[in-house]
């Protein structure tokens, strides 16, 4: 199943946004002075966003090859 270029572009942008947002959340959570246990939900959220972004970007790259 092939996606249209516009849809592929939208997904690529989406993936890039998730990577940036996820990374920013992880960095900001790490830099906040607090016990690690309170940072865990935020870190998991950031990591999950980052992973989803990477997954989407890899799918797009694979489809373009």
């Amino acid at each position: 199943m092939r996606n249209s270029p516009a849809y592929g572009g939208f997904k690529a942008l989406n993936g890039a946004l998730f990577i940036v947002l996820g990374a920013a959340i992880v960095v900001r959570m790490f830099n906040t002075p607090a016990p690690l246990s309170y940072k865990i939900p935020g870190l998991i959220l950031g990591a999950a966003m980052f992973a989803l972004g990477v997954h989407r970007s890899l799918l797009i790259l694979r489809a373009r090859r």
Partner: peptide
């Protein structure tokens, strides 16, 4: 979003 506010709320 303020991470320190999130920690404070928790």
């Amino acid at each position: 979003f303020r991470p320190e506010l999130l920690i404070h709320s928790m």
